[in-house]
């Protein structure tokens, strides 16, 4: 079944053109600010204050990057932390999530609904900041550890529910029945049939998880004091919030002095560039799973 160029199977040429035009317009709207972010990060502070934002800086400068890499060691360390947390976290989370999603997708499992409810309940209700903090530090003793950056996000009710829906939809009960009659155990069915069939779902949930871990600064801000465990995003956040805090309180004399030492917008944008670029490069890796026809191989294999 190589690419059958049946005319029914394709979009009419005229509509194809319309959609391309529409998407191009959308793409331009989405990419302009990103280009602006990259441009500002390379604009000199003087020309920024004289001429405002420009897509093509009238005066190029690497000052913002130089400022950030003044703390070169910390950047490298933070990059390790972020990469480590993201990789470990995504892997761990995918395992837990897919196992649970599979259990919840089994219509013949009696406790499926209770478990689904217990899961969903946590999506709406939570104990709040202080109780979580007490549990995580006083009971689980996770403060200032690598694990506190991973465990709290490893089970997202949203992701489990999405993946469960994918599984229910793309895996027919008949296939599972057939496998069971052939004597396959639950683990075999899960590993050899369910997982391969759920690749688009896994890729979606995996991407979401990866983005959550990559973008997180909150857990760091709350639980991490050891500079060796400060992630990139938390670093960005610290820098940004210091700028915000000082500018909001700039009427007091002491803070005004601090203000002069802090780099302007250029540095903010530069840090953004540093964290944004890798994740944009990672996206195509996930993208290859969002392609039609991928599932056939799984069934027949």
């Amino acid at each position: 079944m190589e690419h059958t160029s049946n005319r029914f199977n394709q979009l009419p040429r005229s509509w194809n053109m319309v959609f391309h035009t529409l998407l191009t317009v959308l793409a331009v709207i989405c990419i302009i600010p990103i280009i602006l972010v990259y441009a500002i990060s390379f604009t000199s502070e003087a020309s920024l204050s004289a001429k405002g934002y420009q897509f093509w800086p009238s005066q190029w400068s690497l000052d913002a990057y130089r400022y950030i890499f003044r703390n070169g060691e910390q950047i490298v360390q933070s990059a390790y932390v972020t990469i480590g947390v993201t990789a470990m976290g995504t892997l761990f989370s995918l395992i837990v999530t897919s196992l649970f999603a599979y259990v919840l997708s089994r219509r013949d499992f009696r406790y499926r609904n209770i478990m689904a409810f217990l899961l969903f309940f946590t999506m709406l209700f939570n104990g709040g900041l202080v109780p979580s903090y007490i549990v995580n530090t006083n009971v689980l003793h996770l403060a200032d550890t690598f694990w506190i950056l991973i465990l709290p996000y490893s089970l997202s009710a949203f992701n489990v529910i999405i993946l469960r829906t994918f599984m229910q939809q793309s895996i027919e009960t008949a296939i599972l029945e057939a496998a069971r009659i052939d004597g396959a155990g639950e683990w075999y069915i899960f590993g050899r049939i369910v997982l391969p069939l759920s690749k688009p779902g896994l890729a979606t949930v995996g991407l979401f998880t990866l983005v959550t871990y990559w973008n997180d600064w909150f857990l760091g801000q709350l639980y991490i004091t050891n500079p060796k465990l400060v992630s990139l995003q938390y670093m960005l956040m610290k820098l940004q919030s210091n700028i915000d805090f000082v500018t909001n309180n700039a009427t007091s004399a002491t803070n005004n002095m601090l203000l002069a030492q802090i780099p302007a917008e250029g540095a903010r944008m530069a840090i953004l560039v540093i964290v944004l670029t890798p994740i944009l490069c990672a996206y195509p890796f996930f993208q290859k799973y969002f392609v039609k026809g991928l599932t056939i191989g799984g069934i027949k294999g």
């Binding site: 900041l129 007490i134 709350l222 919030s241 915000d244």
Partner: peptide, 16 residues
């Protein structure tokens, strides 16, 4: 300093 202090310290106090 900044929001780092504002986030961490009050929660630490609140949770003893």
């Amino acid at each position: 300093e900044g929001s780092d202090f504002e986030t961490k310290v009050p929660v630490m106090l609140a949770s003893g």
